[in-house]
Design a binder for these strands. Structure first.
Lengths: 334, 334
DNA sequence: ATGAAAGCGCTAACAC
DNA sequence: GTGTTAGCGCTTTCAT
């Protein structure tokens, strides 16, 4: 038998659909006996109301959308953090992404339109462009650089990048390459700024030839990493703007016959779980990704409850995690 | 301005909504000039059709649902695998879960009802009870034990458990505890069977006191693990039915002042990325989780295209990954 | 080639 | 206390 609808329940209980609707929504003004009859019909038929039909009609659901450009390690951590933050609440979580790579530019707006009122609010993960109004409360994680000023949660990317770069400098590296991330994101800019500042602080200059742009994906890092590593005077260390790019760089290094960390030190950013599994383990800047998510969920829930959150731009601290992918620079070794 | 609907587009283009609908759905029987005018209106207004309204009307969407009991490491890997498998197709991916713990019994059916035709098919991850018919094609990953026979994808759990147990036996362990998983899942039963068989093969008997039941969650492992480890004659090794339980066991061991692997060896199952990050790293049975997902997606897409998949029950191979959480048994050490 | 109208499952006025 | 009705945004006959 097909899906059971409110009409079936009404028929079974011998009442009208609006009565059923009132019962399942806990409205009052319903005789106790009627309520009972309806409830019985509901459980007998195993009725569950359609989120779709309901959201088409009302302007609010209890579903939180997490909109991401793709399911990769970073967003997966976000999902875990969001779920944990929502444990034992009655919210439901809906993560959405187009399968096609990155969803294309402006995916956030498209997803939001497509989902409509299905979700009562959304967390946008690394969004590029969003026009402020979507009809539902929005919170961003690691957002783009730009004019629209949505509540946001991010890490202290500047400090993180300085930590990573300084670590390399302390190991004696002088020629340090930088593999940047998605240029549209604030995080990416901050990481580049941190890199440059730490280099300047260390009295080193940045060779423009040793700066390349990736887009945070492992595969996309291959081309720029290859350029970096086949440079006639190649760097002895590379700071990649995220772990996936760093892993891509290590892939390329291996193919080029370079040993990490002997011939090349590599530092990433994020500290996704995968970073510990590479060989050698990846030295990286730890971002509290799950906390980022929990914080975003906190802000969003406040917004959905029509409470003004206390802060609308939250920045969380980062730290350096040393693993096996970095070592003293060759020339400075005994 | 509120969300732009098909009505707005129709008004802007000076045509009826049905004409707009035909254009955006590529139906023919539309004058070229009209089509152009509509398309222009669509892009000018940034119109994106509502998945919700559409799915209410039609009986099929291009959205694949991944229904999970929660976003934890295993399901996160599934998501990554599914996304990778669908790269550059025009499917969209929607992962859904209730925030409340586990979603309650029968969550699969509830989610399915709530989502209705919003999704054109679904992958059910570790489902307990599903009545076959949901109106859309369904594929399960690591399903329950029971009568309903949906297409399924799982790992060779029996062999995996034997591998893990045999490894412990080879290290000289004799008192080996087992921390089982969700009893409703086929995987859990198979892992227990594998454990028992390997024990028997090794000429060891299973002490019923050393078998406890968890439910695959880290926190839920605390109680049974505590019982196991505070047993008067405690085991020198524990095989936990999944990594999260194994990590919970290590948590308890630490609190009890036991050092892993010196005082206690621990083996898990799954090889989630987190397993490599524990201290010491967790020895575990590697399951190709992302491949499980890719396989399930393959079956589902066939079903959605109304093609009969070649096989409906797929089992993937596993392997043992040795890390730091296992060592020779104390009594057998020099 | 185009439009009017019905209807998907539900909720919310408003009537009785 | 309960039922009737309109309508959310869309697709789809069926007229015109």
């Amino acid at each position: 038998m097909g899906r059971v609808t409110i009409v079936d329940v009404a028929a079974a209980a011998g009442v009208s659909v609006s009565t059923v609707s009132k019962v399942i929504n806990g409205r009052d003004g319903i005789a106790g006996s009627t309520r009972l009859r309806v409830q019985q019909a509901v459980s007998e038929l195993g009725f569950e109301r359609s989120l779709v039909a309901r959201s088409l009609r009302t302007r609010r659901t209890h579903v939180i959308g997490i909109l991401v450009a793709g399911f990769e390690p970073f967003s997966a951590e976000i999902l875990k953090g969001a779920a944990t933050a929502l444990t034992d609440t009655d919210y439901e979580l809906l993560a959405y992404t187009a399968a096609s790579r990155g969803g294309g530019a402006g995916w956030e707006r498209r997803y939001l339109s497509r989902l409509g009122a299905l979700i009562g609010g959304a967390v946008l993960v690394t969004p590029s462009v969003v026009d402020a109004d979507a009809g539902v409360p929005l919170v961003t994680i690691d957002p783009h650089t730009g004019p629209v000023d949505l509540p946001s949660v991010s890490s202290d990317n500047l400090t993180g990048a300085m930590l990573a770069t300084r670590h390399l400098i302390e190991l004696g590296h002088r020629r340090i390459g930088f593999l940047a991330g998605r240029p549209d994101l604030e995080s990416s800019r901050a990481r580049e700024a941190g890199f440059r500042q730490a280099m300047a602080d260390g009295g080193l200059e940045v060779d423009p030839d040793l700066v390349r742009v990736g887009d945070y994906r492992r595969e996309a890092a291959r081309a720029p990493a290859t350029e970096l590593l086949s440079h006639r005077s190649r760097p002895t260390a590379v700071f990649a703007a995220n772990d996936l790019s760093a892993m891509g760089t290590m892939d390329v290094a291996r193919e080029l016959g370079l040993t990490v960390p002997t011939d090349l030190s590599v530092v990433g950013f994020d500290d996704i779980p995968e970073a510990a599994v590479t060989t050698p383990g990846l030295t990286t800047v730890h971002q509290p990704i799950q906390q980022l998510a929990a914080t975003a969920i906190g802000l969003l829930v406040d917004l959905m409850d029509e409470m003004a959150p206390e802060q609308t731009h939250v920045q969380l601290p980062v730290s350096l995690v040393r693993r096996g992918s970095t070592a003293r620079a060759l020339e400075s070794r005994s």
